[in-house]
Amino acid sequence: MKNYFVLAAAAMLFSFSATAQKYFTKTGKISFDATTSSSPEKIEGVNKTSTCVLDTKSGAIQFAVLMKGFLFERALMEEHFNENYVESNKFPKAEFKGAISNNDAVNYSKDGTYAVTVKGKLTMHGVTKDVETPGKLVVQGGKIQATATFNALLADYSVSIPGLVADKVAKTAKIGVDCSLELLK
């Protein structure tokens, strides 16, 4: 009987400690750049309201981005992005669900910079693809700065570019992630 209580106490402790090891942000920055050398203007947008949660125990990491939250320098570009390319009414969110493959190499209780590899599934424009990218975690004063840059082939996510502008928009978009994560209480 005693054993059961020990087990239960351990399980409870475990679960409490597990919830205490989540870091999050609701103001993560995700940018994308589809400029090519023949683009007449910079094709870049930025979203500063991305959501991210990182479980430091398991290394699981998740992102959610509202497509309409991408801001552009040119209003018309924003319109075309939402209306013609990513169809943000039909597919309002992009999501990434994955994990840090080398989570053991990161000491979250010690300040420092850690190189990580993130592997997971990116869902955008209704299509889910496997993504693997190197990234960086900077642990400092109880906060985690997570950054990464990776490429996404637009055709993979069935984002079609009409022939007329085919040479003015890059086939691959460079996606940048920059999130400052805080402890989730």
């Binding site: 597990a18 919830t19 989540k22 999050f24 609701k26 959501t51 949660v53 990182l54 479980d55 398991s58 699981a60 990491i61 998740q62 959610a64 999501e95 989730l184």
Partner: peptide, 9 residues
């Protein structure tokens, strides 16, 4: 629930 971390928010 950990399966969907975003639900925690």
């Amino acid at each position: 629930q950990d399966d969907d971390l975003l639900k925690l928010l």
